[in-house]
Design a protein around this nucleic acid. Structure first.
Length: 763
DNA sequence: TAGAGCGCATTTTTT
DNA sequence: ATGCGCTCTA
């Protein structure tokens, strides 16, 4: 398909700043990829092009497309999220930034665990901060590049002085654990550039073209980052849609896009208003609703697809009926060709997925959920990762405390408190006491001391060198040494099966990651951004830290997709069911009041509507369960903003029935059962790593057998290769003449070799 | 120290 | 409804 004139103009834009206002479905991804392609073809070095995307997945897809047209050079493009790019820079600038080269990344959960400990330790008056509120406040400060010392000096009032203390202690905690939080990943490079002119110039001069996708959702800090990195070339090309700005709560500033023209002299503005995705009725609905917003550039999407069914608006009695009717519709529409990937069900909050899941399960429609409790957020996975992180870095106190007594090993709260106290007196991290200074532990009561020393030994034995040991091997050793699976068994039987599966998934993910690295030869330049030997524990942990759930959305699974409106950004489906369009939910109760917040909710609605290609069903229930009991719900104000000629309403008469609002309804699904369906129905992408590892035998290596099979090579043996250097045997495959060996080389990472010709010498 | 039992807040959205 | 943190008992 050919580009239309404004698209072509954007692709061909030369030097200088350019703002592309790209309406929903107007082909902005095509514009971005074609533009990068054009630049490279005209001779711009790929590594001098810097592109920011909103998710890792978007970056991956863009790179894949470019690889298809440009070939391998596309791998050298700087394409990624702000966070991933920040990490890349920090891996090279760790010294100048005053951080560890192999810094840890703390996510929201880790941050809160740390804050909880910090707040407790400061003994502030009557819980003036919850971990959540402190995290929010600190994040805002970091986004404005305010450091703890500055806040301490300029604290305005008692409350802020308290916050300054929390902030300071939190930063100390991060530093001692060698960790950065998400915001640091951008704030630290920005701070470096602002304080070190030379570094700022070095990095700005690295890039000839800077491109930003989803520009409407950038915050001030990210904007600063962009400015600094494009300062030398001035070729800043941003693409976005002010009507789709839905991350204001996370600090995103629509002002970045609304004021872009003014900020950048000689900025070219291009508008993409032809929509290639949706039919006319859908677009009419979208346009009509969004026109009620005032803070916008204003545009009118149009489509050549004049045919199309009207948008349906359904009134139903309650959420169970909503789920039921939606499942029936999907069943009817999808049973012909059984292609479930064409359908998506959207909602405002994750909690709404429960009844939807129940109905889909009942009708035997395969589905998967994006987000919610993300894979890497599950307790069992976090526990496993905490073990791995603590093994890699015992000073990571957040991880260490998480697993100190999980599974229970007789180190309870009292012992933990004593350990922390001892650590404070010795000015060492608790993990360092346990792993490196066991003699100090003897100062504690004997019984607990013995258990702690055992724990420390176990931790040390997991990996002799985390930056060289293969990630899957360490994980296997962990499962051998810690009776974690047995511990799961103890919990409620419904859940324990699922949890075990999840642990297996993690083992698979580690394995897949290792196999992915096996196939990659890493250039010296790329190695600068990496940490640890490819495929090693440290490498794995660094990769896992940045993964979000949308990133693992596996297009292969034939299933209906369930997700929040936020997760749906950038995606499209033939048929969209937009559920729970009620006051209090969309717009959400938390955002009713402020006009600007209502407008953001309206944009969220708009995003939902514009995901649909052919069919859009919007539903609202007259009763909704909240916090356990059922309350009446009124239709969303947005439903009054629809153009009636393009809409077909159904079930409206329900609202006038006397019995539509019963005092209190019992939930009629037999309680507790949806868990079951969830476990059966969810098809989870195995991991974020797309590596092809089918040809690899996944069995757990059997150490005994291997040593009998070949007396020279066995798993775990140290070997020397003429050109690849020293390494450790990771796995043996096949036998006799065909014996192949996977070796984890200290410098080069994993390689698969024919044993007969590899010329390996045992060490 | 661990597990049971009770009261309480929780649900907005996520890189 | 559920999950967490707190208290109390074995």
């Amino acid at each position: 398909m050919q580009l239309n004139p404004p698209q072509q103009e954007a692709v061909d834009h030369g030097a200088g700043p350019c703002l592309v206002i790209a309406g929903a479905g107007s082909g902005k991804t095509r514009v971005l990829t074609n533009r990068i392609e054009r630049l490279v073809i005209q001779g711009v070095a790929p590594w001098r092009i810097l592109g920011f995307t909103f998710t890792n997945k978007a970056a991956g897809e863009m790179r894949a497309r470019l690889e298809a047209s440009l070939g391998r050079v596309a791998q050298r493009l700087w394409l990624g999220t702000f966070h991933a790019t920040g990490v890349r820079i920090l891996r090279r600038e760790w010294e100048a930034s005053g951080i560890d080269r192999d810094f840890n990344i703390y996510d929201a959960d880790d941050q809160q665990a740390l804050l909880k400990r910090v707040i407790k330790g400061l003994s502030l008056p009557d819980g003036s901060f919850t971990p959540q509120s402190a995290r929010g406040a600190i994040e805002r400060l970091k986004r404005s590049l305010v450091r703890p010392e500055q806040l301490t000096q300029n604290a305005d009032g008692f409350k802020e002085a308290q916050l300054a203390r929390v902030y300071k202690a939190y930063e100390d905690g991060l530093r001692r654990a060698g960790a950065l939080d998400f915001t640091d990943l951008i704030a630290r490079p920005v701070r470096l550039f602002e304080e070190d002119e030379e570094a700022a110039r070095r990095w700005a001069e690295r890039f000839d073209y800077v491109l930003v996708d989803e520009f409407q959702d950038t915050n001030r800090l990210q904007m600063r980052f962009i400015e600094l990195l494009s300062a030398a070339c001035g070729n800043l090309f941003v693409v976005g849609d002010d009507d789709q700005s839905i991350y204001g709560w996370r600090g995103a500033e629509v002002a970045n896009i609304l004021g872009f023209e003014k900020q950048w002299d000689g900025c070219k503005v291009i508008r993409l208003e032809q929509n290639y995705r949706s039919t006319q009725p859908i677009l009419e609905v979208a346009n009509s609703v969004i026109s009620h917003n005032s803070a916008r550039k204003g545009k009118n999407l149009w489509t050549a697809q004049k045919e199309g069914e009207k948008v349906q608006v359904l009134t139903v009695l309650d959420e169970d009926e909503e789920a039921e009717s939606l499942a029936r519709r999907i069943r009817a529409a999808g049973s012909k060709d059984q292609d479930w990937t064409r359908f998506a069900v959207l909602y405002r909050t994750h909690a709404q997925s429960r009844s939807l899941e129940a109905s889909l399960g009942k009708y035997r429609i395969p589905y998967r959920i994006i987000g919610g409790t993300r894979f890497y957020d599950r307790k069992e996975i976090r526990d496993m990762l905490a073990y791995l992180k603590a093994a890699a870095n015992p000073a990571d106190t957040v991880s260490l405390l998480r697993i100190l007594n999980t599974p229970p090993r007789g180190i309870g709260k009292t012992s933990e408190a004593r350990l922390l106290d001892l650590a404070r007196r010795k000015e060492l991290e608790p993990g360092m006491l346990l792993t490196a200074f066991p003699e100090f532990i003897d100062e504690l009561p004997a019984a607990a001391a013995a258990r702690m020393k055992d724990f420390g030994k176990m931790l040390v034995s997991l990996s002799s060198d985390p930056s060289k040991d293969a990630a899957p091997s360490v994980l296997e050793r962990l499962l051998q040494k810690v009776p974690y699976l047995e511990y799961l068994q103890g919990s409620d039987p419904e859940q324990s099966a699922t949890r075990k599966e999840n642990v297996e998934e993690l083992v698979n993910a580690a394995q897949a990651f290792f196999e992915l690295r096996l196939g990659q030869s890493v250039s010296d330049e790329e190695r600068e951004d990496r940490v640890g030997t490819p495929g090693s524990l440290v490498d794995f942990l660094a990769d896992v830290a940045l993964v979000a759930d949308v990133d693992s959305l596996d297009a292969g699974a034939n299933a209906v997709t369930l997700m929040t409106l936020h997760n749906a950004k950038g995606l499209e489906y033939d048929s969209i069911h937009l559920t729970g369009v009620e006051e209090g939910l969309l717009p959400h109760a938390m955002s009713i009041g402020e006009d600007s917040e209502i407008e953001e909710e309206r944009r969220l609605f708009y995003v939902g509507v514009t995901r649909a290609c052919k069919r859009l069903v919007i539903s609202h229930a007259l009763n909704r369960r909240r916090f356990g009991d059922t309350l009446p719900a009124s239709p969303s104000r947005f439903l009054n903003e629809l153009p009636e000629e393009w809409v077909q309403r159904e079930g409206e008469e329900l609202a006038h029935r006397v019995d539509a609002f019963p005092q209190r309804r019992q939930s009629y699904s037999s309680s507790g059962n949806w868990q079951n369906r969830r476990a059966g129905g969810v098809t989870r992408a195995p991991s974020s790593f797309g590596g092809d590892w089918n040809d690899i035998n996944q069995e757990t290596p059997d150490y005994e057998d291997m040593s009998q099979e070949d007396d020279k090579l066995r798993v775990g043996q140290r070997v020397m290769h003429p050109s690849l250097g020293p390494g450790t045997v990771h796995k043996l495959e096949g036998g006799g003449e065909k014996l192949r060996v996977i070796v984890m080389f200290d410098k080069k990472g994993p390689r698969k070799l024919m044993a007969r010709v590899a010329g390996l010498k045992p060490l």
